[in-house]
């Protein structure tokens, strides 16, 4: 038995400590941060090997890969935080191909002076999200930038997944006549974030809808393997997603305002701020497009899943060389649902 005594290392101060440049310098401090924080939280066989990469067996069939960076402000918001968001966001991007997500990587860019307590909260939230989704974080990286050169913490996650046989989901597959479905109420995430920004200071009970949608997607592709398009309407909201799909598939869309699910509180907040809920971000919703004969089955499957309870058929794809997304307003008229121009800015009066 070895008699070599291990050097005493003072544990990281997760109460009052801060990130400093040494945490990214490749020395002992960095190794300690990785050991005491990231390895402890994300713990799995791949990370325990302490390699610079994760090695895993490749399943047969088609694989997908997606990456997503997260720079949200504030870092903590009602219903979630940047950590959970960074896991859900990439899982969802992988899942929107119909795939089953397998592994994630995570990269942190930390700003010098960032509180270790907040960092631990974020990392533990990521670990919890990844465990709940059963998609492990198998490799990662940490960099530290000088104070003033970052905004606390930026997180980039990358995910890989495998597409079940017979499933072919892509944004260019919508055809005139296809039905458009959404999995639930729109605008919750964006309003939750905005309600928390200091300059607005209004109170709402709305929570972010941040969630991993791969479980819902698995049910959907099982029930309707012919589903044509899936996309999560994140930044730019439903409006941006439908315009993207219109452009990719070379079709137009016609939706009905009265069928688009929006919570009364979200509507009220948007009303107050002069925003359109169709432009507001979601982090736990998806848009699905399917052949008309699949619509009823797909809708029933979505509604049977906890993350699709409020799913609805909101319209259909139409032939349109201009690729316009049109909406029949609840009032009885028609209008375009356009891309957002620039940033979403509130109106003046």
């Amino acid at each position: 038995m070895s008699t070599v005594k291990r050097d005493y290392v003072r544990p990281l101060d997760f109460k009052a400590g801060c990130v400093d440049m040494s945490h990214g310098a490749g020395g002992r401090a960095m190794a300690q941060l990785i050991d005491e924080l990231f390895l402890a939280a994300f713990d799995n066989d791949w990370l325990r090997q302490l390699n610079d990469q994760a090695c895993f067996a490749v399943p047969t069939g088609r694989m997908v890969m997606a990456t997503d960076s997260h720079v949200v402000s504030p870092l903590f918001f009602p219903g979630g935080d940047i950590g959970a968001l960074s896991v859900h966001g990439t899982i969802n991007d992988v899942a929107m191909s119909g795939a089953r997500p397998l592994y994630l990587s995570a990269t942190f860019i930390l700003e010098e002076g960032f509180s270790l307590a907040d960092l631990r909260r974020i990392v533990e939230s990521m670990a919890a999200a990844s465990r709940a989704a059963r998609v492990p974080i198998v490799t990662g990286d940490t960099k530290v930038v000088e104070k003033g050169k970052g905004d606390g913490v930026f997180i980039t996650t990358t995910g890989v997944g495998v597409v079940p046989e017979g499933v072919e989901v892509s944004g260019d597959r919508a055809r005139p006549g296809d039905r458009v479905l959404v999995s639930g109420t729109l605008g919750d995430h964006g309003v939750a974030i905005m309600s928390f920004r200091e300059s607005l200071g209004f109170e709402t009970t709305i929570r972010s809808d941040t969630a991993a949608l791969h479980g819902l997607v698995a049910r959907m592709v099982e029930a309707a393997p012919g589903v044509r398009c899936l996309r999560d309407p994140t930044r730019g909201g439903l409006a941006a997603t439908l315009n993207e799909l219109a452009r990719q598939s070379r079709v137009g869309f016609r939706i009905r305002e009265r069928d688009v699910p929006v919570k009364a509180e979200v509507n009220a907040a948007c009303e107050l701020l002069g925003l359109d809920p169709l432009n507001v971000a979601n982090e736990g919703k998806l848009v699905a497009i399917c052949a008309p004969e699949d619509a009823a089955r797909l809708l029933a499957t979505m509604r049977a899943h906890p993350l699709g309870r409020d799913a609805a058929v909101i319209g259909e794809a139409i032939e349109d060389p201009h690729r316009f997304v049109q909406m029949e307003t609840g009032f009885g008229g028609s209008r375009i649902v356009d891309w957002l121009s620039g940033e979403q800015l509130p109106r003046i009066c």
């Binding site: 307003t329 609840g330 009032f331 008229g333 209008r335 109106r347």
Partner: peptide
Amino acid sequence: THAISRYGVTDL
């Protein structure tokens, strides 16, 4: 102007 356009009032 905004209300007329957003709700499609001219259609009515």
